[in-house]
Simulated scan of single mutants.
Amino acid sequence: MKKSLLIIVLISACQFRVADEDARESLEDVPIEIRFGDLLVDGRNMHYAYTEQEKDVQLVFIHGSPGSWNAFIDFFKVDSLLRDFDMLSVDRPGFGDSGFGEAEPSLEKQALLIERVLSQFPKKKQILIGHSLGGPVAARMAMDFPEDFDGIILVAPSIDPSLEEEEWYRGAIKTQVGAFFTPKEFEVSNDEILALRGELELMLPLWDKIKVPTIVIQGTEDSLVPKENAAFAKRMISDSLLEVNLLDGVNHFIPWTDPQEITKAIYQLIDGQ
Rank of each mutant, 00 (worst) to 15 (best):
F85C: 11
F85Y: 15
F85Q: 14
F85T: 13
M87E: 02
M87T: 04
M87Y: 09
L88H: 12
L88Y: 09
S89Q: 13
S89A: 10
S89N: 14
V90I: 12
V90N: 08
D91E: 04
R92W: 01
R92Q: 06
P93W: 03
P93A: 08
G94F: 04
G94S: 08
D97F: 11
D97V: 13
S98F: 02
F100C: 14
G101D: 00
E102N: 09
E102S: 05
A103F: 00
E104C: 10
P105D: 02
L107A: 06
K109R: 09
K109F: 02
K109Y: 05
E115L: 04
V117L: 03
V117Y: 04
L118R: 00
S119Q: 09
S119K: 04
S119P: 00
Q120L: 12
Q120W: 14
F121S: 02
F121A: 02
F121W: 09
P122N: 09
K123V: 03
K123P: 10
K124W: 02
K125I: 02
K125E: 01
I127R: 06
I127M: 04
I127G: 02
I127W: 01
L128P: 03
L128A: 01
L128D: 00
G130Q: 06
G130M: 10
H131V: 06
H131Y: 05
H131F: 05
S132D: 08
S132F: 05
L133R: 00
G134Y: 01
G134S: 09
G135T: 07
G135P: 00
P136G: 10
P136Y: 11
P136R: 09
P136S: 15
V137P: 00
A138K: 06
A138Q: 09
A139F: 08
M141A: 12
M143W: 03
M143Y: 10
D144H: 07
D144K: 15
F145G: 07
F145T: 07
E147K: 10
E147I: 14
E147G: 11
D148F: 07
D150H: 11
D150I: 15
G151Y: 05
I152P: 00
I152D: 04
I153L: 09
I153D: 02
L154V: 06
L154K: 01
V155S: 03
V155H: 02
A156G: 01
A156C: 03
P157H: 13
I159S: 03
I159L: 08
D160W: 04
S162N: 07
S162K: 07
S162F: 12
S162T: 10
L163I: 11
E164H: 01
W168C: 08
Y169G: 15
Y169D: 14
Y169I: 13
R170D: 14
I173Q: 08
I173V: 13
I173K: 05
I173W: 11
T175D: 12
Q176L: 14
Q176M: 14
V177R: 15
V177W: 10
G178M: 08
A179P: 00
A179I: 11
A179W: 06
A179S: 06
A179V: 10
F180V: 08
F180T: 13
F181L: 11
T182G: 07
T182N: 05
